[in-house]
Computed example of a mutant assay.
Amino acid sequence: MEPREDDTVSDESLMADAAAGDRKAFGTLTRRHMRRSLALAQRVVGNASDAEEIVQDAFLQIWANADRWRGDGTRFTTWLYRIVVNRSIDYRRRRSFAPLDAAEEIVDPAWSAETLIDGRRIGAEVDAAIAALPERQRAALSLCYHEEMTCAEASEVLQVSVSAMESLLVRARRVVRARLQPLIRQKDGVRP
């Protein structure tokens, strides 16, 4: 078979070829979706090196089970993201992680120290609010906001109804907003 690097070839077509044993088609799928899969896994587990391990495991699982690909109207990315999210949640449950704020950031000389400190503090508060969410709510936020999936697409990934997905998002936003209210009031100059 000839390599199919053409971006016009659909993921589903490539997956069908991979299911028939075409390693090059699977390589194309992997290259296409590696970056976004890594970003999704990192947002769920909060650690880049763990995300790499999760995504590598997810793609190995997909290759090993390629013959199970249905191709019955389900998008490949829905199947892929479902595997990545499930692996991430399982991985996070098995391990404890060091806080992300332990990592050093590169300082941009164009920003003032005060702006950097404010940005870090706000970023840490937002990260903490999201990290405190239950895993499914965190995954729902990540799929809909970072991966820009519709509620229907995200509901397929998490294997819940659309109304359940909407409920996960509403609860997640409500909890994050409530946790950030003191910070918002302080930023607006209102004392708590």
Rank of each mutant, 00 (worst) to 15 (best):
K187R: 14
S37P: 12
A64C: 08
V45N: 07
W63G: 02
N65Y: 11
S49Y: 02
S167V: 05
G27P: 00
R31W: 13
I122D: 11
S10M: 03
S10T: 08
V175N: 01
H33K: 05
G71Y: 09
L80V: 15
R94F: 01
W63N: 07
V170F: 13
A20R: 11
P99T: 09
A103Y: 06
Q56K: 09
V190T: 11
A51P: 14
V160N: 10
S49H: 05
T28D: 05
E153D: 12
N47I: 05
R120A: 06
D11P: 06
L158D: 02
T115F: 07
T115Y: 08
V170Q: 08
D188R: 12
E52P: 02
A48V: 10
A132C: 11
T77F: 00
R32K: 14
D90I: 10
A154C: 03
R94Y: 02
R93T: 14
E53I: 08
S13F: 02
P3K: 03
L168E: 06
Q137N: 13
F97H: 10
R94V: 02
D67V: 10
R92P: 00
L60D: 14
R31N: 11
F59L: 14
I117D: 15
A41M: 05
L133T: 12
D118H: 10
V44I: 15
M149T: 04
I122Q: 07
